[in-house]
Every structure is written in C-alpha cells, then in structure tokens.
Simulated scan of single mutants.
Amino acid sequence: MKYIKIVKNDRGFTLIELLVSITILGIVLLSFMNFFLQSSTYTNANQKKTVGVNVARNVLMFMEKQNFLEIRNYFHDVNTGDKSSEADFLTLLICDEKYKLFSDSSTESEINNTCPKKKNITINGLEYEAAIFSEEVSTPGEMDYYIPITVKVRWNINDREYSTTVDGKIKSEDIR
C-alpha cells in the first residue's frame, strides 16, 4: 500500500534536488569529455608519428635505389676520415618535384645554386626534415657489400620538436 502512495505522489522534485542531480550529471559528463579530449590528442600525435615513420621508410627506399658506390664512398670517407661520423650526414630535400641528396658540408649558397626552389617533405601541411646517417661498421670490408644507415625524420608542432628513426641497410648490386 505504501508503494502505491509513492507512485501516486504528485508533488514532483524540489529545486535543490534538480540542482544536485544536474551537478552530479555535469561532473560525470565532464570526466568523460576529458577522456575523449586526451584520446583525440594522443591519436593526432600518433598519426603524425606514423607519417614520420612512413617518410623515413620512403627515404630508405630512395637510398636503396641510389648508386651504391657513390653512397659507399661518401660514408666510407666519413667513417674513416678525420671528422666525426656523428656530424656527417646526408639531407634529403625536394628539388623540382624530385628527391635530391645534399651533404652536410654543402653550404646554403651551394644548395640554392643547385636547387633554388628546395623544400622539405610536406605531408598534410606539416614539414618533415629527413637526414641520413651511416652507422659504424665492425670491419671496413663490410662496406663493400652493404651500408648500415639510419634515417632520422624530424618535425615541429607548436614549437616542440618530434623525431623518429628507421634503421636499414643498402645492399651492393654485387650480392643482389
């Protein structure tokens, strides 16, 4: 009998009950909205990193198509020369809608003379800088057959620098 009286009660909710329930609902929804905001930010950052990895893979594939002897001679001189191998690298830029390699010893004026309309790799409005490094080999004879390289790709978002690397090997045509 009491149950029927509660159901038939026509008094409704008080203003305080409504405000408390709206406040609790707002707190719960706010926490869920924060979760979606964080996941969106994380997904966006991972998307850019995935593009960076794909750019590095593309650069690695481009390097595999280059003349093995020229690349070997450049990196062999770097690894056996007086300069530190950490400072010597190749930079890949887009010049006349094609990839073009420049050494780190190239001056800005030399690059501008060779390619006046140079630009970095741009995907979805974001510029990616690609640099190619050679790793040290245990014996110098190893570079006769393959060159271990690392492609480092960097990009900036909101004045913060991000980077990713991909390791690979360029094989000589003699062992293909």
Results as ranks from 00 to 15, higher is better:
residue 50 T to K: 08
residue 42 Y to C: 05
residue 59 V to E: 00
residue 45 A to I: 15
residue 70 E to C: 09
residue 46 N to E: 06
residue 44 N to Q: 09
residue 50 T to P: 05
residue 41 T to R: 05
residue 59 V to A: 00
residue 64 E to F: 12
residue 40 S to Q: 05
residue 53 V to F: 02
residue 56 A to I: 00
residue 65 K to F: 13
residue 67 N to M: 03
residue 50 T to F: 11
residue 48 K to H: 08
residue 55 V to R: 02
residue 63 M to L: 08
residue 65 K to E: 13
residue 59 V to S: 00
residue 50 T to G: 10
residue 69 L to M: 10
residue 52 G to V: 09
residue 46 N to W: 13
residue 42 Y to L: 12
residue 38 Q to T: 11
residue 56 A to P: 02
residue 51 V to I: 13
residue 49 K to R: 11
residue 55 V to H: 03
residue 61 M to V: 10
residue 57 R to V: 06
residue 67 N to W: 06
residue 49 K to M: 04
residue 56 A to L: 03
residue 70 E to H: 11
residue 38 Q to A: 11
residue 64 E to K: 13
residue 69 L to S: 13
residue 66 Q to W: 14
residue 68 F to E: 08
residue 47 Q to T: 10
residue 50 T to S: 07
residue 45 A to L: 14
residue 51 V to H: 00
residue 46 N to D: 07
residue 50 T to V: 13
residue 62 F to H: 05
residue 56 A to G: 03
residue 69 L to E: 14
residue 57 R to N: 09
residue 60 L to M: 02
residue 53 V to D: 03
residue 46 N to S: 07
residue 39 S to H: 09
residue 39 S to T: 07
residue 44 N to L: 09
residue 60 L to C: 02
residue 41 T to L: 12
residue 55 V to E: 03
residue 53 V to P: 06
residue 69 L to R: 08
residue 53 V to L: 02
residue 63 M to G: 02
residue 42 Y to Q: 09
residue 43 T to D: 04
residue 65 K to Q: 15
residue 38 Q to V: 15
residue 50 T to I: 08
residue 54 N to Y: 01
residue 39 S to E: 13
residue 67 N to K: 09
residue 68 F to A: 05
residue 57 R to W: 10
residue 49 K to Q: 08
residue 62 F to L: 03
residue 43 T to Y: 06
residue 65 K to H: 15
residue 47 Q to M: 12
residue 49 K to I: 09
residue 52 G to H: 12
residue 70 E to W: 10
residue 62 F to Y: 15
residue 65 K to C: 15
residue 58 N to A: 11
residue 45 A to N: 08
residue 44 N to P: 04
residue 41 T to I: 13
residue 63 M to S: 05
residue 61 M to P: 01
residue 43 T to V: 12
residue 70 E to K: 13
residue 39 S to V: 14
residue 57 R to F: 08
residue 66 Q to T: 10
residue 52 G to T: 11
residue 60 L to Q: 00
residue 61 M to L: 08
residue 38 Q to I: 14
residue 64 E to A: 07
residue 60 L to W: 01
residue 39 S to K: 13
residue 58 N to F: 10
residue 58 N to G: 03
residue 55 V to A: 03
residue 61 M to A: 08
residue 63 M to R: 01
residue 68 F to T: 11
residue 42 Y to R: 10
residue 60 L to R: 00
residue 54 N to W: 05
residue 62 F to M: 04
residue 44 N to E: 06
residue 70 E to S: 12
